[in-house]
Nucleic acid binder design. Structure first.
Length: 217
DNA sequence: TTGGACAGACACTTACATCA
DNA sequence: ATGATGTAAGTGTCTGTCCA
């Protein structure tokens, strides 16, 4: 290389060779390239025009890997996502590629794999969330129904209680004995007679509900 | 122990190839 | 012709390792 190398050519060349190699070939340009690399904002990559800068158009053109190369790379990735130096060199030799290309391929493949995995996790979580929302709706509806039933039950208790008090206060000396009286109609709550109705079970727990909670809704 | 060189990984980006 | 998409490769940064 000589001093006629332009900045543009330096940029182009730097795209295809590591800085270490450039520094051996043209130390001054390497310093400039290294300085440029630390600048912000990012240096825009030059558009790659065929034959520009006297370069070989085919060399500059982005190469697509062959089916065979991809197949071998995929197999290798399938067995291990990480790429040790030794395996990289072996693969590169086997595929006729630059070790750097193999490293880049693994880098990109890991990125694609991670992206796909994140998509799948997102879909799974979304599905679980939707299922949970539906279940929540169902439980809320059930809760409303139960509250309604409880309200009706309280009204019935109140009605029966008033009727009972009326009977007791109107005929304290009635000749009717308790034994002869018809028990009040308890409808669907007639479970085990009046005593059981007014006094919750000792465990205070029936079918997942606390009696205490039922009375204080 | 420390600091610099270096390599590898990763996120982000760019540019090219391909296809609908 | 053109916009969308996939992908090879560039860039910046961080981290771990080695060695003087």
């Amino acid at each position: 290389m000589n001093s006629e190398v332009t900045d543009n050519q330096t940029v182009l060349i730097s795209q295809y060779y590591p800085v270490g190699i450039i520094s051996q070939l043209m130390p001054e340009q390497a310093v400039a390239a290294a300085a440029a690399a630390t600048m912000k904002p990012r240096r825009r990559r030059r558009k790659n025009k065929e034959n520009e800068g006297g370069g070989d158009g085919l060399l500059m053109r982005k190469r697509k890997l062959s089916e065979e190369q991809l197949s071998l790379l995929e197999n290798s990735f399938g067995s291990e996502h990480k790429l040790e130096a030794e395996r990289k060199d072996r693969l590169a030799a086997e595929l006729g590629l630059d070790p750097r290309q193999v490293a880049v391929w693994f880098q990109n493949r890991r990125a694609r794999w991670k992206s796909k995995r994140l998509d799948e996790e997102y879909s799974k979580l979304k599905s679980e969330h939707e299922t949970t929302v539906v279940e929540k709706c169902r439980l809320e509806t059930e809760l409303l129904k139960l509250k309604e039933q409880l309200h009706e039950a309280k009204k019935e208790i109140q009605r029966l209680s008033e009727r009972w008090d009326g009977i007791m206060s109107n005929s304290p000396s009635s000749c009717l004995s308790m034994e002869t009286m018809e028990p009040p109609f308890l409808g669907e709550f007639e479970i085990g007679g009046l005593e059981n109705f007014f006094y919750p079970p000792e465990t205070n727990y029936v079918h997942g509900f606390e009696w205490d909670n039922l009375y204080y809704i």
